[in-house]
Amino acid sequence: MERVSGVSCTVGESPTWSAAESAWYWVDIPAKRVWRMDASSGATRYWDTAEMAACVATKAGGGLIAGMETGIFSLELGEAQAASAFKLATPASGLGEGMRFNDGRCDRQGRFWAGTMFMDMGAAKAVGQLYRYDAGRGISAPFVSELLTQNGTAFSPDGRIMYLSDSHPQRRMVWAFDYDLADGVPSNRRVFADMTTYVGRPDGAAVDADGCYWICGNDGGCVLRFTPDGKLDRRIDVPMLKPSMCAFGGKDLDTLLVTSIVSGKPEDAEWGGAVALLRPGVKGVAETPFGA
């Protein structure tokens, strides 16, 4: 495992690979910061945002789409230190005080999916919802409601299965849905993995070329791989206690970038908040940019 030098995040999240730029992006949520790392040189830089950005995906033509505190935004990242942000949509019911978007990514057709959460996890308010946004139809009504801490959104290689997790300590569940490619509608929700029987909480996720689902075991210091039928077949221990999300990238899509969260525990002092790269021996699936 290789640590990305000079980077430490309070809540590192939402890594994504830009094939067009040969670069990685991720966010530090409370720092209101978007990070970028050039894959060839390893050079890093960041942009400040006016609101917390919790999830990002690349856009066709450049820039990012982001789920933030008050809605879905388009982010343009220029030479200035601050990102230019343009609000694209807000849920019809609004987000409400204490809410923000959390985890998100694009489906295989380039539609952006993101969910909301109540930021005070200790309150355990099941008010989170999952939305779809596309330029033609705008933001959808919520497809999933009563989530505590929405997370783990991912799609199978053929796009016909959508995954979703709830990482709250009281929930710790991963679901699978059938996914209509034409309409972008999930159905037939069922339990994919009951994480109460495994180490860690199910945080951000990725899917590999074999259709296996990789989920960060937050609080468990590991990344777990589940086969398409929901069987755990691999565990990779990482030096961060709270790995938060993973993503495949690199020229051959054979590198896994893992972000993490500072735990505040002495045993996590060196690696908590680190961003790391590892080679798991399998390849991922190219992500579709928003609007592609």
Rank of each mutant, 00 (worst) to 15 (best):
I29H: 11
A50D: 14
S41C: 04
E21W: 14
P30L: 13
W17F: 14
R36L: 02
T58V: 15
T58W: 06
D38C: 07
A60I: 00
D38A: 06
D48F: 05
S22T: 12
R33H: 03
A23V: 12
M37R: 13
A20L: 02
A43Y: 05
M37A: 11
S41F: 03
G42Y: 06
R45Y: 02
G42A: 06
A19F: 09
D28S: 10
A57Q: 07
R36F: 08
S41Q: 12
K32P: 06
A60V: 10
A23P: 04
W47S: 07
A54M: 02
A43C: 03
Y46T: 15
S18M: 05
E51F: 10
A53S: 13
E21V: 04
A31V: 06
G61W: 10
S40Q: 02
T58L: 05
C55K: 13
E51Y: 10
K32G: 02
D48K: 15
A60W: 03
V56M: 14
T49N: 07
T58G: 02
D38G: 07
T44I: 06
R45M: 03
A43H: 02
V34Y: 03
K59M: 11
W47P: 11
M37Q: 10
P30F: 01
A54K: 00
Y46P: 00
T44E: 11
A23T: 12
S40H: 04
T49H: 14
M52S: 14
T49L: 07
D28K: 09
A20M: 01
D48E: 08
